[in-house]
Computed example of a mutant assay.
Amino acid sequence: MKKFLVFLFSMFSVQLPVVAEELSVNNQVDFANAQWNKAFNAGDVDALTQLYKNDATLSPGNGAILKGRDAIGQLFQSFVDNGVTNHRIDTDSIYVSDNQITQIGYWQADGKNAEGEKISFGGVLSLVLAKTEEGEWVIQSHIWNMQP
């Protein structure tokens, strides 16, 4: 399947702009991933949280489920404050139905360990995009784990 332009967690706008119908699903996923990555890597948590629906859910692989933009923003702010950067996404699979696109893939980012040394880490992610009544794609659900 084609990649869906997003995001990553690498470009921004308050919400993903309406994407022309002629764009392929892969291009939409790729765009969405680029928007997400741009916002996160710039440390712009406000722009990042605007990519999520107001009632979005997020599970960061620790058994918790965060609900809503405020809770999601607090988590991402903690990552930014702790020096996590260079986030990227590699799409593996895309599933489409009606006004929803689900992406399964891999993520990777850089940070620092307790000694201040650069480290890389990553894992698997699942991201569900929902099309709003205005025709914009926003994140409804985001789940990831971290590989040891």
Results as ranks from 00 to 15, higher is better:
residue 2 K to W: 02
residue 2 K to A: 05
residue 4 F to W: 01
residue 4 F to P: 07
residue 5 L to E: 12
residue 5 L to V: 09
residue 7 F to D: 15
residue 12 F to A: 15
residue 13 S to L: 13
residue 13 S to K: 08
residue 14 V to Q: 14
residue 15 Q to G: 08
residue 17 P to F: 06
residue 19 V to K: 04
residue 21 E to Q: 11
residue 23 L to H: 07
residue 24 S to R: 09
residue 24 S to Q: 05
residue 26 N to M: 03
residue 26 N to A: 11
residue 27 N to W: 04
residue 27 N to G: 11
residue 28 Q to N: 04
residue 29 V to F: 03
residue 29 V to G: 15
residue 30 D to F: 08
residue 31 F to W: 03
residue 31 F to V: 05
residue 32 A to G: 10
residue 33 N to D: 14
residue 33 N to K: 10
residue 34 A to T: 09
residue 34 A to E: 15
residue 34 A to C: 06
residue 34 A to V: 07
residue 35 Q to I: 12
residue 35 Q to W: 04
residue 36 W to T: 12
residue 36 W to F: 12
residue 36 W to K: 06
residue 40 F to P: 00
residue 41 N to I: 00
residue 42 A to K: 10
residue 42 A to L: 12
residue 44 D to C: 01
residue 44 D to Q: 11
residue 44 D to N: 15
residue 45 V to W: 04
residue 47 A to V: 07
residue 48 L to E: 11
residue 49 T to D: 04
residue 50 Q to W: 06
residue 51 L to V: 02
residue 51 L to D: 06
residue 54 N to P: 06
residue 59 S to V: 03
residue 61 G to E: 08
residue 61 G to P: 03
residue 62 N to H: 04
residue 62 N to P: 02
residue 63 G to M: 14
residue 64 A to L: 13
residue 65 I to N: 12
residue 66 L to G: 05
residue 66 L to D: 04
residue 66 L to Y: 10
residue 67 K to W: 02
residue 68 G to R: 02
residue 69 R to A: 05
residue 70 D to R: 01
residue 72 I to C: 01
residue 72 I to F: 12
residue 72 I to A: 06
residue 74 Q to T: 10
residue 75 L to Q: 10
residue 75 L to V: 05
residue 76 F to D: 14
residue 77 Q to F: 09
residue 78 S to M: 12
residue 79 F to R: 09
residue 80 V to G: 04
residue 80 V to T: 04
residue 80 V to F: 09
residue 82 N to S: 15
residue 82 N to I: 00
residue 82 N to V: 00
residue 83 G to H: 09
residue 83 G to P: 13
residue 85 T to F: 14
residue 88 R to H: 14
residue 89 I to H: 07
residue 90 D to Y: 08
residue 90 D to E: 15
residue 91 T to D: 00
residue 92 D to G: 05
residue 94 I to E: 03
residue 95 Y to G: 00
residue 95 Y to R: 05
residue 95 Y to I: 09
residue 96 V to D: 06
residue 100 Q to F: 12
residue 100 Q to L: 11
residue 100 Q to H: 13
residue 102 T to E: 13
residue 102 T to Y: 11
residue 103 Q to A: 12
residue 105 G to V: 03
residue 107 W to E: 00
residue 107 W to A: 02
residue 108 Q to H: 06
residue 109 A to K: 03
residue 111 G to H: 06
residue 113 N to Y: 05
residue 114 A to P: 07
residue 115 E to C: 08
residue 116 G to V: 08
residue 117 E to G: 08
residue 117 E to A: 13
residue 119 I to R: 00
residue 120 S to E: 02
residue 120 S to Y: 07
residue 121 F to T: 13
residue 123 G to T: 14
residue 124 V to G: 04
residue 124 V to I: 10
residue 126 S to H: 03
residue 127 L to C: 11
residue 128 V to G: 07
residue 128 V to M: 06
residue 129 L to T: 07
residue 129 L to V: 04
residue 130 A to K: 02
residue 132 T to I: 03
residue 132 T to Q: 09
residue 132 T to L: 01
residue 133 E to Q: 13
residue 134 E to N: 13
residue 135 G to I: 09
residue 136 E to C: 08
residue 137 W to E: 01
residue 138 V to F: 02
residue 139 I to H: 01
residue 140 Q to T: 02
residue 142 H to A: 09
residue 142 H to L: 11
residue 145 N to K: 02
residue 146 M to P: 01
residue 146 M to V: 10
residue 146 M to W: 01
residue 147 Q to P: 03
residue 148 P to I: 02
residue 148 P to G: 12
residue 148 P to F: 06
